[in-house]
Simulated scan of single mutants.
Amino acid sequence: MVDNSKRKLKRATIIYWMMLTYIVAALVWWFISLERQSDSLADFKYKQLNATVDSTSAPIVYLYELKAIQQERRKKTAMHLSEGLFFLALIVITGIFIFRSVRRQIKWQIQQQNFMMAVTHELKTPIAITRLNLETLQRYQLDPEKQKKLINTALEETSRLNFLTNNILLSSQLEGDGYKNANEELDLSDLLKDCLAGFEKRFPDRKWVQQVQDDIDVIGDPLLLQLLINNLLENAVKYSPKTGAITASLQQNGGLKQLTISDEGPGIPDEEKQNIFEKFYRIGNENTRKAQGTGLGLYLCTRIAQYHNADISVTNHSPNGSSFVVNFPG
């Protein structure tokens, strides 16, 4: 289905350029035809002038009529040229607008299809694992240690499912202005530490590095800021190798309060650094990429940052990986 949409996009692009080329060629031909017609009319007037007025006996009258014919010819050329340029500009501007609209619509359709494929996979996996664990507990008499392990796995998968549904619901609410904000003064340092504690519990084998300055307060919505931090940490876990460190930093930097989440993954190409914050956008092909995700996490981070008058960006992390930086106003 996605390949079909890409073929539509390619076909629409080819048809657009063919039509635009034809219209411009027709416009040029129209200009040439009018100029030829004006030349023929001017030649006729020249012949008529030579037949009716003697240039030697009445040179003043002849030159006056000749100048009038030449001025009229120049006016015709200027009129044709101005009309042609106006219609050319109108055609090009309209064509670009239509072309961009069609491309945007088809790309949006491709992104939605990618999103549906990703969501389907993201929903099926935790549901299947949880159901399998519960059925295992129901059918077999397991020792307490194995029961605890299965229950913990089921709880982790339901947490992942809850995280996904929260992203989808909150994205819809923020876009439709349906979210009721609860701005208050809160300790961002404590919030970051709580989020890190939850991830350390979920991923005990990962290497976590904290560089959190205490008592950094911001005015904001606790739920949105928690979701912002969790999405950035989830993204770092997703793309960082299991042996790589994930660093969470929160510092007062001049007049800004700077939150940074860094990983040691493959990094992000420079040409993709702006695209990754678009809704549904994911690097690579949905059928071949290995990393899970829906393309909503970083988009939500952008919306939440804007909601708090903050800005978010991504830079390269040394020696490898990416660093996502959120700057809150002081």
Rank of each mutant, 00 (worst) to 15 (best):
I110M: 03
V325G: 09
K146F: 06
Q71E: 14
A310P: 07
G293C: 05
W29V: 09
Q112C: 12
Q138I: 06
V28A: 14
T120F: 02
E278I: 10
T94K: 04
L132Q: 10
K193I: 10
Q70I: 07
L150I: 08
E145G: 03
D263P: 13
V28I: 15
K201S: 10
E35P: 01
V326S: 09
R206F: 01
A248Q: 09
L300T: 00
N162Q: 09
R103V: 04
L49H: 10
S33N: 13
A291P: 00
N253P: 07
L298K: 07
N309G: 08
R139A: 13
D221L: 05
K149W: 01
Q141M: 05
A197N: 13
R206L: 08
N4A: 12
F277N: 07
G84Y: 02
L164F: 01
Y62V: 09
P222G: 00
F324Y: 15
S38A: 15
L88F: 14
E156Q: 07
K6H: 08
K201V: 13
Q138H: 10
L164I: 01
Q112N: 05
G255L: 06
R282G: 04
T243G: 15
I151N: 03
L142M: 11
N253Q: 15
L233W: 00
T130A: 13
W208N: 01
F31K: 03
G178L: 11
A58Y: 12
I14D: 05
T136E: 05
Y239T: 01
E185T: 14
L123E: 02
A26I: 03
K6D: 03
K6L: 08
T158C: 11
S323E: 08
L132E: 11
I312Q: 04
S57K: 13
L228E: 02
I23K: 04
A68E: 13
V314F: 10
G220Y: 10
R100C: 00
L196A: 10
S323T: 13
H317A: 12
E122W: 04
E271S: 14
E83S: 14
G220N: 13
T315M: 09
W29T: 14
R100M: 08
G265I: 01
L90G: 12
F115W: 06
Y46S: 07
A128P: 02
A118N: 10
V53D: 06
E65Y: 04
P204I: 06
Q210M: 06
W208C: 08
I246Y: 02
W108P: 00
Q226K: 15
R131C: 05
S323H: 08
G220W: 04
N152Y: 13
T13E: 14
K8A: 01
K207A: 01
R289M: 07
G176A: 06
W208Y: 02
S322A: 15
Q113M: 09
L161T: 06
S171G: 15
N181I: 11
K124I: 02
I32K: 03
N50D: 12
A245V: 12
L123A: 11
N327W: 02
E200V: 00
L41A: 13
L34S: 08
N181M: 08
L85D: 11
Q213R: 11
E184R: 15
N183F: 10
N162G: 05
V119F: 04
